[in-house]
Amino acid sequence: MSRAVHPDTPSPTSTTPLTPATASTRLKALTVPAMLAIGGFVSVQSLINGQLAAGLGTGLRAGALAAVISFGSGLVLLTAWVLLHRPSGRRLRGLYRGVRAGHVPLQLLLGGLFGAAFVASQGLATGLLGVALFIVCFVAGQSVTALLVDHFGWGPSGRTAISLPRLFGAVLAVVAAVLSGVQVGLSSTSVTPALVLTAALPLLAGAGTSIQQGMNGRVAVHAGPWPTTWNNFLVGTAGLLVFLALSFLAPGELVGLPGQWWLYLGGLFGIAFISLSTVMVRIHGVLVLGLWAVAGQVVAAVVIDLVVAPEELGPLSWVAAGLTLVGVLGAMTLRARGVR
């Protein structure tokens, strides 16, 4: 006799699961702009959270508070949506029932901690590195780790072996990161240990983002994008509150809340790229999503620095941006021609 399933409990299987193998070519083509937008949202959020941290004060506590404001505001908006949108509320309750029933591994709900680390790194590192260098370092960590996430089957689409097109795109992203680092060195008096350590923050954040996308994609199979996004913001906000408390052990000060309204929009952009990513990763896989998002990230980052801090840009910055785009388009072309 089959076991009865509660109507709010997400099913571990579906009749036609959406994966890169089952998604149509038309669907993949139509969703490319959404992946580019994800990358653009990441760059804009990096600018906002970096500026917010600078306006809040100095030291770790300013970056931590900026991250709490960004994640916390997103959590408030998502909570209102889940309460008002009954299907999302039912699926959220079903998600936690699925965890208790063993359909959803508990560790998959912790992806929000990686998102929290990324948002915290924005407040801590963007001011020193500039948006362009921050994003390219983020891209390097994201691209390399995405290869591993797909290769080991940590995402919703199962194992996807490392191939020449995938390696091509990831390697060019890393080369672009190195060139951007050299550009900062040429425009500064010296490359200090502090600069290197700061650049490591977005590198590690990018690695965590690829793992987060894989985890979120698997959760979304059971619960859909909105409950998955809400859970991310809940877990991330909790982690950031702990980080904020610990940050008061380090030097720094808070001077008050900045008056510019746009500095409080980081949560909206976070909602946009996390919710979109939970859908796109099921259609394209972690690496392909990451490569297209790279294009959106780097182009938006260069435009932002061109407007906000043109002194941060130099010849190698443009070469680095070009290489990331060549990596994305080249990887897609090689795949389309059947190169493995």
Rank of each mutant, 00 (worst) to 15 (best):
Q107D: 07
Q107V: 12
L108P: 04
L109H: 07
G112W: 10
G112E: 07
F114S: 12
G115L: 12
A116L: 08
A116F: 12
A117Y: 06
A117D: 01
F118T: 15
V119E: 04
V119Y: 02
A120H: 01
A120Q: 02
S121V: 12
T126C: 04
G127T: 12
C137V: 14
Q142H: 09
S143I: 02
L148I: 10
V149H: 09
D150P: 08
H151S: 14
H151W: 14
F152E: 07
W154K: 14
P156V: 05
A161Q: 13
I162S: 11
I162V: 15
R166F: 09
R166K: 14
F168P: 04
V171M: 00
V171K: 09
A173M: 14
V175E: 05
V175Y: 10
A176S: 13
A176I: 02
A177L: 03
V178W: 06
G185V: 09
L186N: 14
S187C: 01
S187G: 13
S187Y: 03
T189F: 02
S190R: 13
S190A: 15
T192A: 10
P193R: 13
P193T: 07
T198F: 03
T198S: 10
P202S: 09
L203G: 04
L204W: 06
L204I: 15
G208N: 07
S210W: 00
I211Y: 09
Q212R: 06
Q213V: 03
M215D: 07
M215N: 13
M215K: 12
R218G: 04
A220N: 14
A220R: 08
A220H: 02
A220V: 01
V221N: 11
A223L: 01
P225C: 02
P227M: 06
P227W: 09
N232L: 12
F233P: 01
F233C: 00
F233K: 00
L234G: 02
L234T: 13
T237S: 15
T237D: 08
T237R: 13
V242H: 13
L244E: 11
L244H: 12
A245I: 06
